[in-house]
Simulated scan of single mutants.
Amino acid sequence: MAGMNEKDYYAILGVSKDATAKEIQKAFQQKARKLHPDVNKEPDAEERFKEVSEAYAVLSDEQKRARYDAMRSGNPYAAYSGAPRQSPYAGSSSGFYTSGFGGFPFGGVWSSQRTRGRGGQAFNPEEGADIMVDVDLSPEEVRSGARKAVKYRRYEPCDHCHGSGSVSSEHAHTCPSCGGTGAMDVDMSFLFGAGVFQMVCPECGGSGKVINDPCPQCAGSGRNQVISEAVVEFPAGSHDGTLVRIKGLGNAGTNGAAAGDLVGRARVAAERLGDRARQGFRMVGFALPFIILGIVVPSFRLLALVSLIPLVMGVMAAGQEALSHRSLTWWKRGATHVVNGFANAVFYAILLGWLSSCMMYPRMMPFGYW
């Protein structure tokens, strides 16, 4: 989700930057009543309601608002006035958390990095995603195996902070906005009797931890995007769609988490079914049960004759591609689609046969005579 300094909470609520607490509460009440999911059924109403609630959760708290203004102004020390201040909401039923951090509003360098729009101040270790690359192979390379060099874009651990995301601190700190819970409470007892509404903390993204001094190279994420090269080795006997996994060469995880894998996927044109051929094989399979039904049940011979049309069309569609594909794997995949089409049509063929027998012998109907 977007960070606190990446959103204009004043604009979201429709108030000025010097608005009083009462003006902020009044603006929130008006917007929340219109956007509440129980009242507004528009598709984006719930998302807009959460955004308005997030803005109110920050601007209605004295300390959170001061830190937010400091981030937006580019002065990380703007909200610092010596001794830490106690929030007027501390200990109230609203559930707002106080900073407990004392002093710097967002930890010096971290705040200034955020203000420049680089983000990354939330400490949220997540395992890196796998990266899949398609590699074209010829029939000869499929039979004998091949080593293929590939270039791909990935995230790698930041050299400056060694993947931690922090310049000097070895450990992340408790988020000052949510007190480490990863969530913020909005007191909405005045609105629809809803009580306390809980939302994901916009400062730490739900992790409950933040980095005070994010790395200037990776903005605290612990990774940077680069172009990498690797060699993917496909064993002999590979086929179209064969996957080769290389451990740890995918995207690096955030804040020191494990990296994902690089997955090479073989693409063999001689074995790949085109959309037209795939549809053709399915049409052949779908027509066969009705043709068989017409042979078994004389009253359905007309249906069998009509089913010859999709059968011929399917044969023509698959045949055009078959002229240039003589791979056994290609034919096996075509047969799989024939079976799938056949299985889909069997149900309808059995249903028609049963209805036909019921019309001929009404006593067989489960509800008596027609």
Results as ranks from 00 to 15, higher is better:
247 K>A: 15
247 K>I: 13
247 K>C: 06
247 K>H: 14
247 K>Y: 12
248 G>F: 05
248 G>E: 10
248 G>C: 08
248 G>Q: 07
248 G>N: 11
249 L>N: 13
249 L>Q: 15
249 L>H: 13
249 L>P: 12
249 L>V: 07
249 L>M: 15
250 G>L: 08
250 G>F: 08
250 G>C: 09
250 G>T: 05
250 G>R: 02
251 N>G: 10
251 N>W: 09
251 N>V: 11
251 N>M: 11
252 A>Q: 09
252 A>W: 04
252 A>K: 06
253 G>C: 12
253 G>L: 12
254 T>D: 15
254 T>M: 13
254 T>F: 09
254 T>N: 15
255 N>C: 09
255 N>G: 03
255 N>L: 00
255 N>R: 07
256 G>E: 13
256 G>D: 11
256 G>I: 11
257 A>V: 09
257 A>F: 08
257 A>C: 10
257 A>Y: 07
258 A>N: 14
258 A>W: 03
258 A>R: 15
258 A>K: 15
259 A>N: 09
259 A>H: 07
259 A>I: 05
260 G>N: 06
260 G>C: 03
260 G>E: 06
260 G>V: 04
260 G>W: 03
261 D>I: 10
261 D>K: 09
261 D>E: 13
262 L>Q: 11
263 V>L: 08
263 V>T: 02
263 V>Q: 02
263 V>S: 01
264 G>N: 00
264 G>Q: 01
264 G>W: 02
264 G>S: 01
265 R>Q: 09
265 R>Y: 00
265 R>M: 05
265 R>C: 00
265 R>I: 00
266 A>P: 06
266 A>Q: 01
266 A>E: 02
266 A>V: 04
267 R>W: 08
267 R>G: 04
267 R>Q: 12
267 R>M: 12
268 V>N: 01
268 V>R: 01
268 V>Q: 00
268 V>K: 02
268 V>L: 01
269 A>C: 00
269 A>L: 12
269 A>Y: 09
269 A>K: 14
270 A>N: 11
270 A>I: 08
271 E>F: 07
271 E>Y: 05
271 E>C: 07
272 R>D: 12
272 R>Q: 15
272 R>P: 03
272 R>N: 13
272 R>Y: 02
273 L>R: 04
273 L>I: 04
273 L>S: 04
273 L>V: 04
273 L>H: 04
274 G>K: 01
274 G>H: 02
275 D>N: 14
275 D>S: 15
276 R>Q: 14
276 R>H: 08
276 R>S: 12
276 R>M: 13
277 A>Q: 07
277 A>F: 01
277 A>C: 09
277 A>M: 05
277 A>G: 09
277 A>V: 03
277 A>R: 03
277 A>S: 15
277 A>H: 06
278 R>S: 15
278 R>C: 06
279 Q>H: 10
279 Q>R: 13
279 Q>W: 05
279 Q>C: 03
279 Q>S: 14
279 Q>I: 07
280 G>Y: 02
281 F>H: 12
281 F>D: 06
281 F>I: 02
281 F>R: 04
282 R>D: 03
282 R>G: 13
282 R>Y: 10
282 R>W: 05
283 M>E: 14
283 M>P: 00
283 M>L: 14
284 V>T: 08
284 V>P: 01
284 V>C: 11
284 V>W: 03
284 V>L: 12
285 G>Y: 03
285 G>P: 08
285 G>N: 10
